[in-house]
């Protein structure tokens, strides 16, 4: 089964939120808060990135590459990068993988590779 990161599409105006919000940011009406769950696209362009040289202590890696990606359709997502020489504006493609482990809990998130 292909794993996805899901966004929340307002049932009234169709605006897509990631991450989830209780009230739609676009229509701002508080008489409804119903959303459809839609998978986020996986291809996009790298907007900005950084390499963290002292990641949080529960990571067993010396450096952690992080970036913000503008996905097709204009939604943005923060994710980890697995790219040798990242450049602003390059095409990337995401895969849903384990991004953090807390004891036996595994958190899934988007990891981007060069497209």
């Amino acid at each position: 089964m292909e794993l996805n990161i899901y966004a929340y599409k307002c049932k009234r105006c169709g605006h897509i939120h990631y991450p989830y919000k209780t009230i739609c940011k676009n229509c701002g009406e508080n008489d409804h808060n119903e959303f459809d769950i839609v998978p986020l696209p996986k291809k996009g362009k790298l907007l900005t990135y950084t390499t963290l040289y002292n990641p949080p202590s529960d990571y067993e890696v010396p450096t952690l590459a992080l970036g913000i990606v503008e996905l097709e359709g204009g939604h943005r997502i923060t994710g980890q990068l697995n790219i040798k020489n990242p450049k602003i504006g390059m095409n990337v493609e995401g895969k849903v993988e384990v991004v953090r482990k807390e004891a036996y809990n595994k958190h899934l998130g988007m990891v981007f590779y060069q497209a």
Partner: peptide
Amino acid sequence: LAEYIYGVTLPSLAGMFARLYME
């Protein structure tokens, strides 16, 4: 859910901000 689980810390947000700003 959208940042912390990726290992995002304040320095890394600042790093991404700075990279874009410099560009």
